[in-house]
Write a protein that binds this DNA or RNA. Structure first.
Length: 422
RNA sequence: GGAGAGAUGGCUGAGUGGUCGAAAGCGCUCCCCUGCUAAGGGAGUAUACUUCAAAAGGGUAUCGAGGGUUCGAAUCCCUCUCUCUCCGCCA
């Protein structure tokens, strides 16, 4: 959510950002300012009325204290309509505030100036590439190798839970665990604090990071208890500090968390969901940063560089995309996607997404810090995957398979796998 | 799941209808005093919104959350959430 004052002062910039992101109703910007005007007028009015009635109540209190009951009665009788007037104005105030906020929630974050303007994924810019994409014809897609070796059991997963909930068996289970440990250890060495989070969150938390009202359908729910299965660790980790005020010297704060992630992925189909490409449950190590507003730009670059370093150490060729305005999402000011090369499928697979939310999430969650003047100020948040497992596993299976049908273990994972080849 | 107790500012904790946004203590900040350390004295110290060009200063709201009673609610009533104790169940 944007600051209403920012919108007031930057009406055209906000509108332009909205159009560039492909949002249709840029009129919401004018509408929200109008509503806000209305709201502020009414707030003043209600405030004055309440001040009046508070004054009267105080007088009555004084008179009662002095035993002047008659005079007090007099004033009580005078109060008459004020109370009802206040009540009805409060009702409209509430209604107007809701209308204003509903509009405010429809206004996306403003893209950073460095973000290319565009409408589709075609307009994303290749920011950098690393390694040589392998084009050898004999390489099998990961699902074929995994089926041969009985490493990933999609059929039994379907039987036991449903499509998109595979079993990982034997070496694959261990590979998953190896990756999780490796990613966590790397993050810790790079200054992130590991945390373990709840896998279910309440509605307030889902709202805090913007899953509600925007992306409600992506989450699995537990209606009986009012829970949402987390679609990413971003939700519990960012909400960890919801409604808190940091001392400035304590920023930045970095967290890393491994969690399973659950996503309904309604509407996906075809090659997209083949094998490990898209699952309903998958594992991910997430990175979250809470930072001073002056530093979020550079923090995004260091976040991206860190995520890239993981792929480099795994020796998996990848490319980094700078997402265009139309493909970056509602809440971000700037976003990089890391795509690993899948030699069995001959295509790029997204394994990380590093985003700067600036104050957008933090404002909604009232994440603040005390600045040098001692005033509270909204901080900035960022997050990125470091990394999402299934497609990394896919890339490893396809990149490290030998023509003889074995799988070599990436060097950095050998200590975790206990073997160089499986 | 059953029974009971509770939730007040950064912390401890007082306050059971009337100048209470809230005593006192601790902590923290600034100043004074004091030739180390320690101690002492004074002032200040919540958040959000709003008014204002801005600062200063006003105003409103907030004592777990929401609703109600009342001229007036931290205080009374209702609902919910959370914490603690006991019983039950249990990885």
């Amino acid at each position: 959510m944007l600051d209403i004052n920012f919108i007031r002062d930057n009406r055209e910039i906000v509108k332009k950002g909205m159009i560039n992101k492909g949002e249709k109703n840029a009129d919401a910007v004018d509408a929200v300012l109008e509503k806000d005007e209305e709201w502020r007028n009414l707030v003043t009015k209600v405030g004055n009325l309440r001040a009046e009635s508070n004054n009267r109540a105080k007088q009555i209190g004084q008179l009662m204290g002095q035993g002047k009951k008659d005079e007090a009665e007099k004033i009580i009788n005078e109060t008459g309509r004020t109370k009802e007037t206040i009540k009805s104005l409060e009702k409209s105030l509430e209604a107007i505030q809701k209308e204003r906020d509903d509009l405010l929630y429809q206004i996306p974050n403003v893209p950073d100036e460095s973000v290319p303007v565009g409408h589709t994924e075609e307009d994303n810019v290749v920011f950098s590439t690393w390694g040589e994409p392998n084009e050898e014809e004999w390489r099998l897609p990961h699902w074929e190798l995994a089926a041969d070796k009985k490493w990933i059991d999609f059929d039994r997963g379907s039987k036991v839970a449903g499509a998109g909930f595979p079993f990982y068996v034997g070496h694959m289970a261990r590979l998953q665990r190896a990756l999780i440990n490796y990613f966590l250890n790397e993050a810790i060495e790079n200054g992130y604090t590991e945390i373990q989070t709840p896998y279910f969150v309440n509605e307030a938390s889902a709202r805090g990071t913007g899953q509600i009202p925007d992306k409600e359908d992506m989450m699995y729910t537990v209606p009986r208890d009012g829970f949402f299965a987390i679609p990413t660790a971003e939700v519990p980790v960012t909400n960890f500090h919801r409604d808190e005020i940091f001392e400035m010297d304590n920023l930045p704060v970095y967290y890393t968390a491994y969690t399973p992630c659950w996503r309904r992925e309604a509407g996906s189909y075809g090659a997209d969901v083949r094998g490990l490409n898209r699952l309903h449950q998958f594992d991910k190590v997430e990175l979250v940063k809470f930072v001073h507003p002056d530093h979020s730009d550079s923090e995004l670059e260091s976040l991206r560089e860190y995520a890239e370093s993981l792929l480099q150490k795994l020796k998996l060729p990848y490319r980094t995309l700078l997402m265009c305005t139309g493909d970056m999402g509602f809440t971000q000011t700037k976003k990089y996607d890391l795509e690993v090369w899948s030699p069995g499928q001959k295509k790029w697979l997204e394994v990380s997404s590093c985003s700067n939310f600036a104050s957008f999430q933090a404002r909604r969650m009232q994440l603040r810090f005390r600045n040098e003047k001692g005033k509270t100020e909204i901080m900035h948040t960022l997050n990125g995957s470091g990394l999402a497992l299934p497609r990394v596993v896919a890339a490893i299976l396809e990149t490290y398979q030998t023509e003889a049908g074995d799988l070599e273990v990436p060097e950095v994972l050998v200590p975790y796998m206990g073997t160089e080849k499986v």
